[in-house]
Nucleic acid binder design. Structure first.
Lengths: 339, 339
DNA sequence: CTGAAAGCGCTTACAG
DNA sequence: CTGAAAGCGCTTACAG
C-alpha cells in the first residue's frame, strides 16, 4: 500500500495516519479513542503512525460528530479586579482547571462582569463551543443563571445561589455551620462580646455566614455588633475601627473572610490593641491571607479542592443528562494565633 | 413548501432556517455571512427565520469548513497568584477581551504557569481550537514561545521578549525611554542622589527599565543605588528600607512599577520621612496603585488600551499569513504628588 | 441573484 | 477484530 504523504503545510488527518499504519480510518479512530475491538498489532501500528505523522485530532470534526465540545466554561460573574483581589479565586480557578483536565476537558475562561461581557459570553456559549458552565459570582446578579437555564446549558454554581434557584446545581461550603463553629470556638475561648464583620448585604447565598453567627449566639446576639464589609482588606480595617469606636468593650470579632480579618487585625494593632490578648479575631476561608500576617489567623478552612472536584463531577453528570444536584461541604476549624 | 419543524430538543440547523425562509441552505449561509449576492427579500426572510427558529451557527461545523476557529488564546505564562497580584494584568486582560470581541473573536484563557499547565495548554492549542495566541509572561521562561513557533501557531507577545527572539511578534511599551523620562523628571526636580528599585533580574525584556535609568544618569550612575524587587508592594517596602539604611543620603527613588513605589512610600513614611519633601518616589505603569496612596504617585503611563488593540491587530495579520511584526509604544509621564 | 453539490475530518452503527 | 459508508452542520466554488 503506497501512502501519499500529506502535502507540505497541511495538517495530517486521520486518513494520513490510516495510510501510514496500513489500516482503515475506522480502525485508527477506534484505536485513538481507547475503544476495544482493536488488535494489539493494529494498536501499535496506529500509535507509531500517529507519532510519525504528528497527528492531532481536529477538534472541530470531532465536536461536530460527537455533538460534544470537550470543554467547559469558567464563567466569571464579577469584575476582574474584584475577583483578582480575592485569594480564593485563584485557588478555585486552578483547582477547576486541574480537575477538568483530569477528566479530559479543557477550561475556557469567560468574563461576565459587565452587561456587555455577559452578552458576549452567552453568545459564545450559544454557538455550542462548550458543554457546560461553571459559574462563579459572589454578588447577587444571577440573571445570567436564568439565561443559562433558559438556553438549556448544563450549569454548576460555585456557592449557594439565592434560595429558590433550585433549578441550578451548586456546590458550596457549609457557610452557616462554619460560622456556628467559629462563634462556638470564640465562646470556648471565654469571649463574651463577639462582633461580626459580615459579608456585603447583597452577597450570594443570603448571608449564611451572618445567619450562622446570629444562630450561634442565640437570643444573646446583638445586631448592633454587626458591620458589613465588602470582603476587602480595607473594608475589614474600616469595620474594625467602627466597631472599636462604637463598642470598645468587644473582646472578639468574627470576620466573614480572612482578608477582612487581616484588615481588622491591622486596625486593632494600629490602635495599640494586642491580638488576641485584647481582642480575638477569627476569619473564614483559610486563604493565603490567613498566614501572611502576625498573628496568623484562626479560620474556617474551605475544602476548595473538594469543591472544584465535585463541581466537575456534578457538571459532567448534568452534561450526561442527569438533573442538577446540590452539594454542601463541611468546613474545618483551623486554630492559629489570633484567637 | 412544507417544512418539518425541528424535533423537540434538537438545535435548529441551517436547514431549518432555509425551510422556514423558503430558500436554499446556500442562500441562508450567504445571508448570514454578510455576503453579497443576496436579494433584499431573501435577506429579510432569512433574518425572520433565524429569529423564529432561534438558530445559532454551530461553531464546529463552521470551524471545520472554514479551517478557522474564531477564537484566540490568552496564554498566561505566570502563576495565577502572581498575575492576580498585579493590577496591570486585569487591565490587559479586559482590554484584550474587548479588542478581540470587536473583531468578532472570542478569547480563551489558558494557564501555563507550571510545566503541567504548559503541556495541557499546548495540547489544547494543538487541536486547532484557536487561531492564534496572545502570550503574557513577565518572567523569563520563554520555552513556550519556542514550542508555539515550532507548531506554527500565530503568536503575539505582550512585552519585549529576549533579544534575538525576533521570530515572535510583540507589542511593548517603550520601557527604556520611559525610564529615561522618569529619571530626567527627577533630575529636573533638583534631585541628585536617585536610587532605583529595579525589576527582578530575570525579568522579560532584559531589564530595559534598569538600563534606561542607568542611561539617563550617564557616567554618574551608581550601581550600589540599585536594588532588585519582584514587582510586589512588599518587595518595594523591603527595598526602600535597605536603600535608606545603606544610603541615607538618597533624595529620590525610581521604582520599576507602581506597586513597588507604593511599598517604598510606606516604608519611607514608617521611618518618619515625608514624601516628596525628604525623598521623591517615581513609579511606572500608572496602575490603580498609583492613586490609591497618599501622596499619589508620579508615574509613567503605559498605553494599555493601545497595546491590546495593536496586539489584536498584529495577531490577526499573522493569522492571515503576514510575518510577525514588532511594535513599541511610547509611555507618558504623569506628574502627581510623590515627586 | 440562487440552488445543488462537494467536502471539511471525524465517529459509529453496520455488515462481515 | 476490521473496513466501507453514512452523516454531523456548515461554506463555497460552480453552473445557471
Amino acid at each position: 500500500m503506497t501512502s501519499s504523504p500529506p502535502a507540505p503545510g497541511r495538517r495530517p488527518t486521520i486518513d494520513d495516519v490510516a495510510a501510514e499504519a496500513g489500516v482503515s480510518r475506522g480502525t485508527v479512530s477506534r484505536a485513538l479513542n481507547g475503544n476495544h475491538w482493536v488488535s494489539p498489532d493494529a494498536q501499535r501500528a496506529v500509535e507509531a503512525a500517529v507519532k510519525k505523522t504528528g497527528y492531532r485530532v481536529n477538534a472541530y470534526a470531532r465536536g461536530l460528530r460527537r455533538r460534544r465540545a470537550g470543554s467547559v466554561a469558567f464563567l466569571l460573574g464579577e469584575d476582574l479586579d474584584q475577583m483578582f483581589a480575592d485569594p480564593n479565586f485563584a485557588t478555585l480557578m486552578r483547582g477547576a482547571s486541574e480537575s477538568l483536565a483530569a477528566s479530559g476537558l479543557s477550561m475556557v475562561l469567560l468574563l461576565a462582569g459587565s452587561a456587555e461581557e455577559q452578552a458576549r459570553a452567552l453568545d459564545f456559549i450559544g454557538t455550542g463551543q462548550i458543554d457546560g458552565v461553571m459559574f462563579v459570582s459572589w454578588h447577587h446578579d444571577l440573571s445570567v443563571l436564568a439565561d443559562l437555564n433558559r438556553a438549556g446549558v448544563p450549569t454548576i454554581f460555585c456557592g449557594t445561589p439565592e434560595a429558590g434557584t433550585s433549578t441550578t446545581g451548586y456546590v458550596s461550603a457549609d457557610d452557616f455551620d462554619g460560622s456556628v463553629q467559629m462563634v462556638q470556638h470564640l465562646l470556648s475561648r471565654g469571649r463574651t462580646r463577639i462582633a461580626m464583620i459580615a459579608p456585603p448585604s447583597d452577597a450570594v447565598g443570603g448571608n449564611l455566614r451572618l445567619e450562622g453567627y446570629l444562630k450561634a449566639l442565640g437570643p444573646g446576639a446583638d445586631e448592633s455588633l454587626v458591620v458589613h464589609g465588602d470582603y476587602s482588606r480595607e473594608s475589614g480595617r474600616r469595620a474594625m475601627l467602627e466597631l472599636l469606636s462604637a463598642h470598645p468593650e468587644i473582646d472578639a470579632v468574627f470576620a466573614a473572610n480572612d482578608l477582612m480579618a487581616a484588615g481588622a487585625i491591622e486596625a486593632a494593632q494600629s490602635l495599640g490593641k494586642e491580638v488576641p490578648r485584647d481582642i480575638a479575631v477569627g476569619g473564614f476561608d483559610d486563604s493565603a491571607a490567613a498566614v501572611s500576617i502576625t498573628p496568623a489567623i484562626t479560620t474556617m478552612r474551605q475544602p476548595f479542592r473538594r469543591i472544584t472536584n465535585e463541581m466537575t463531577r456534578l457538571l459532567l453528570q448534568q452534561i450526561d443528562g442527569e438533573p442538577p444536584a446540590h452539594m454542601t461541604l463541611r468546613t474545618e476549624l483551623v486554630v492559629r494565633e489570633s484567637t
